[in-house]
């Protein structure tokens, strides 16, 4: 599961540039002194931490299920 999440993360970070490139003129990321690159970096970091939260959430859910079925 973890590797799947990492794969998704890699694909998102690779496609984030092209996804925005068609939005607002040819060079969205390079406008205003390339500030949107910094925003993109923060978005990637946030997505990464969220993926970790989802990963640990699933693991804890599994334990909860085991405990409830044991009782």
């Amino acid at each position: 599961m973890k590797y799947k999440l990492l794969l998704v993360l890699a694909i998102i970070s690779m496609s984030i540039n092209t996804a925005f490139a068609h939005g607002d003129g040819p060079d969205f990321f390079r406008s205003i002194g390339k500030i949107y690159v910094v925003v993109g970096v923060m978005v990637i970091t946030f997505i990464g931490i969220t993926c970790f939260l989802i990963y640990i959430d699933r693991k804890i859910k599994k334990i909860e299920n085991e405990i409830s079925s044991h009782n």
Binding site: L9, S13, K34, V37, G40, V41, I44, F52
Partner: peptide
């Protein structure tokens, strides 16, 4: 995970 995020953020920066 932090290292992989470092690579991904670096890649975005390098592209631009």
């Amino acid at each position: 995970l932090f290292g992989i995020l470092g690579l991904a953020t670096g890649a975005l920066w390098a592209k631009n």
